[in-house]
Structures are given as structure tokens and as C-alpha cells.
Amino acid sequence: MTTLTERPTTIAADDPRLKDSSATRSYAVLGVLVAVLAVLPFLLDDQTETVAVRTLIFAIMAVGWNLMSGYGGMFSFGHAAFFGIGAYTDAYLLVQHGVSPWIAMVVGALISAAAGTLIAFLCLRYKLAGPYFALATFAFAQVFLLAVQNIDALNRTEGFNVPILSEDSWTMMQWKAGSPLYFWIPLGILALGLLGTIWFVHSRTGQYAQAVRDDETAAASLGINVMRVRLVTVAASCALTSVAGSFYTQYYFFVGPEQGFGSAVSVNAIVPAVIGGIGTIWGPLVGALIVGPLSEWIADVLREPPGFLSFLEGLSGLDVAVYAALLILIVLFMPKGIYGTLRDRFRS
């Protein structure tokens, strides 16, 4: 019997139709982007640099969220759980045991990956999909929030303050306020996250993940182990978001239950990705570049509103209202997000 395997291939290895420059192009764009962004600390004043750092934190979370929700099709409404694990692992290990934040970041990422995998396994094992999956992830994040608020070892509702050192220390990830390193570290994390995303999207597992997202039954019938592919995607997503949390603690010298595990944190992971374009490489970054400065501007307006908006003074929650309005507009008019829609228009 002749099997198909034995048939000699008729396609030349350098057939022009096999050329796929999209990965190479993405790596090049990333390189240029990082180089351009890296000079920002020299151009920005301290106040603006704070906004830029916050934007980078948003971007890292959103890039992480996008792996699982955008490419994996498993919509997480509970990424605060993993941001919180990262933030608290860093705080706990540093404050209680003097462990270097670099190590804590890795430990937090591993714990988050394990927790995310377990949560996703339970949800998928019991066939929760779509909004039910999202609600389950939200519920898990809320459970974590309540747990942390009631665990003595984690200082209950008080959270942790990171002791401020008198000297710069690479080991302890501390420098004098306004140091460009506070910008370059999250930029480096973001660059690694995007690098990983580009690699993943073009890898075998990444292609499997997208196939599973598009049609789970068809994917399984082509020999793909659906559960395994999904869990790998979830683990990567949770680990990256966790690193953003660890850096948050280092940058703000403080983390409490709401800053780590609050539902607003989950929203912060989702909003930039949806606005920029889920399931695209650059969408979460584009979204973060809009949401980061916007949230700062809203905070300014609330602090000192211009005359005709004086009734807003001292109110809170306006940022959430603006996000909601923005999301509605995006979903109505640009369902693929700003980057996704522009890309499609540019292509055709």
C-alpha cells in the first residue's frame, strides 16, 4: 500500500507562496517602537512620566489578557486575580522575607500561571463557555479579594507598604524618584510580552489556539488536544498579567486588596484591549496609549474642574463612566477595535 507519507513533496522549499513576512515585520515594528519609546524619560517631566509608566502597566496587563481572551477566545473578567497574585507575591516576599523583587516577579508569575490553569481547567471541564466562563473568572477574582482581606499573614485590608531605601539598589529594584529605570523596566516587560505574543501567534501552539477559538469541534477532529492548548494559553496570559502586578507594587510602594484584586483592575486589563482591538498584536498597546492618558486627564478634571464643569469637583467614578461610553462606541462602530478596524481597512 502506498501511503501519503511516502509520496515525494512537489512543493519547492522556497516556493514564493510559502513566504510569511508577517512575523518578521512585527518583530521589526516592535524593535523600532521600543527604541522610540525608550527615549521618552529624557523628554518627559516627572509628572508626565508617571502617566507614561501607568500606561505601560495598563499595556502589559492588556497584552496578557489578550493572549487568553483575544487569541484563545476565553473571555476573562477576572484578571485582577493574577495581577493581585503578582502584586502580593512581590509585597509579601519582599516585606516579610526580604526577597528580591526580580525573584518575586518570577515566583508570582508561576503561581499565577498555576492558579489560572486550575481555574480555567475547572471552568472548561464543566463546559462553561462565553459569558458563563467570564462570570466564573469574575467570581474567582472576587473570592481572592475576600480571602486576602481576611488573611492575617497578608495584613487583611491594610495591605503592604514597601520599605523605601536610602540608596539605589538593583537587587531591590529601587532608585530615586523619577529615575528612567522606572520607565525602562515596564517597557522591557512590555517588549518581552509583545515579543512572546508575536512568537506565540505564529507558533504551532498559537495556531492551534486560534483554531480552537474559531471552531473547537473542527479543531479536535484535526487531532488538536483542545484542553491542553487552552490551558497553555491561559498560563501564559496569567503569568504576564502577574508580572504587571509585581511591578505595580514596586512602583507605587504600596498594594492593598483593592489595588491588587479589585474588579476595577480586571476592567483595566479589558478596556485597553477592547478599545485597541482584541486578537491583534498591537491592539492592546494602542488601547493603553489612549486609556492611560485619558484616565489621568479624567483624574485632573475631577480634581480641578474647569468652571462649566464645577459640579464634578470631588466626584469619583467618572473614569468608569467614560470607559463605559467609550466601550459602547467602540463595540457599535469599531467592533474590531481601533487598531483592528484600521488594519482591515488598510488591507482592503
Binding site: D20, H202, R204, Q207, A211, D214, T217, A219, L222, G223
Partner: peptide, 25 residues
Amino acid sequence: MRPFESMSVLENVAVAAHHRHRSRR
């Protein structure tokens, strides 16, 4: 028919071909 709609024809088939060929190329 159950195509993976976000993918091109080549990518659809490559997903299946990956079963025996680990490398993308």
C-alpha cells in the same frame, strides 16, 4: 463546513499539517 474563519486557506490546512510537522515551514 467548519473552516477556521479568522485564518487563510493555507493557515487552515497548515493547522492540520502541524500534526505531523512540528516546524511552521
